[in-house]
Design a protein around this nucleic acid. Structure first.
Lengths: 228, 228
DNA sequence: TAGATTGTTAATCGATTAACAATC
DNA sequence: TAGATTGTTAATCGATTAACAATC
């Protein structure tokens, strides 16, 4: 670890824009690919090209968090990758619980990408008692009523919701009561939570909807494609 | 249909910002809930409150597409809902094909939300021939090599990718060759495609990663939560 | 009519890009 | 050293908000 990583936390003063943090994840993803392809260094121009951003934007984004590069050289992949992981918090393991073991819940429990990025699916919960007591993809499924008790015995900071829209708000409330600090909600409904708990909604149908709009209006908007 | 719906298409001249279109989907989702709860009308203040936006933003967003409201009254839910559906293109049915019938692919094939919003999962494709010839969630699974031929006999404008990252680019190329116009990519990799084809990436691990950052930096950023 | 809420303009705020001195 | 690329400043661009006349 060079002294680059210990320098300024957020030179730009105020809060970091959400869009910047999102791009950080994309940079990390590309860096991991570059490392796998045997690259030792990269630079703002290369990263930008890979993702469709300007080189200036890449440098500006990174500058929010410190000085990671070497003028005349670029960035060392392992170093920058490590720094970004630290910023995002994925240098540590996060325990995650899932509520809802239907179609989507099952799939998410088995999704390998979570483990690889530092997330550990610790347990799943469901109200359907025919599903509880079993394991799904190696993850134990418990009755939803056991959530609070389970939370006492484990450090679970993140939760995912994959229940029908009608049940989502109640489930969210229970997760909060259990001490979860962040929620990823796959139910197609806006949930409201205390300010101290962060949450993001992923509505798969909306993703398709946005795509259908883009297809219909493609000739107009030069830049219709965006990766998340 | 009143004359509101036939008025100006995009008074704001240039292309509609992506963020606006995304919020349009959220407005529609809330309107559908309001309708289900028996509301006949709504207004920019109510919609804004439900989603955490200002009333001005709601009106501005809608004004990109026409005059849908009634001064002193607000918006009629059925009318505005219909108008948004028309704008997004979900007043028509879209056929969708899925490539990849692993964990995630299976779950997406069974996801009820797609049907409800006007998307029809027509067929799935996989290279694993032990999976082909069967049906998953009522959707037939064919060998990937049959994709082009299948496309000739059907109108498929949208495709979803749920294969490992290493296979995603090749699959995307095949979808394009088959005439697909929009792609929703769940593989954690940036795919590159001709400009005429629109695509969006959904990286589930990145969603969690963003959440972990927000949890760690919660005290700073007042508004960490965003729904999509 | 009085009250409410729109659509729209102008003002503000924030994010992206271009340019370049500093640095390796 | 000469060449390359950073970090950062200033300029540009775009998006959000506030305010209000127009309208039902």
């Amino acid at each position: 670890m060079t002294d680059a990583t210990k320098k300024g936390e957020n030179p730009g003063e105020g809060p970091v824009p959400k869009a910047v943090v999102n791009r950080l994840s994309l940079y990390l993803r590309e860096i991991d690919h570059l490392v796998r392809d045997g690259h030792n260094t990269t630079n703002s121009n290369q990263l930008g090209k890979l993702l469709g951003f300007t080189d200036a934007q890449v440098r500006k984004d990174l500058a929010y968090f410190g000085h990671f590069g070497y003028p005349g050289v670029g960035y060392r992949c392992d170093e920058l990758g490590g720094a970004i992981r630290k910023i995002l918090g994925t240098d540590q393991q996060w325990n995650v619980v899932m509520v809802g073991v239907g179609n989507l819940g099952r799939a998410l429990l088995g999704y390998k990408g979570f483990q690889q990025r530092g997330f550990r699916m610790l347990a799943a919960f469901d109200t359907d008692l025919s599903k509880t007591g079993t394991q799904v993809e190696g993850v134990p499924v418990y009755p939803l009523d056991n959530l609070s008790e389970f939370a006492k015995g484990h450090t679970i900071r993140l939760g995912m919701i994959a229940v029908p829209a009608t049940a989502a708000q109640a489930v969210a409330d229970r997760l909060v009561a259990a001490g979860v600090e962040g929620i990823l909600n796959f139910a197609p409904i806006t949930i409201s939570l205390p300010d101290r708990v962060v949450h993001t909604g992923v509505d798969l149908a909306i993703e398709l909807e946005q795509l259908s709009f883009s297809v219909l209006n493609r000739r107009n908007e030069d830049q219709a494609s965006v990766d998340s």
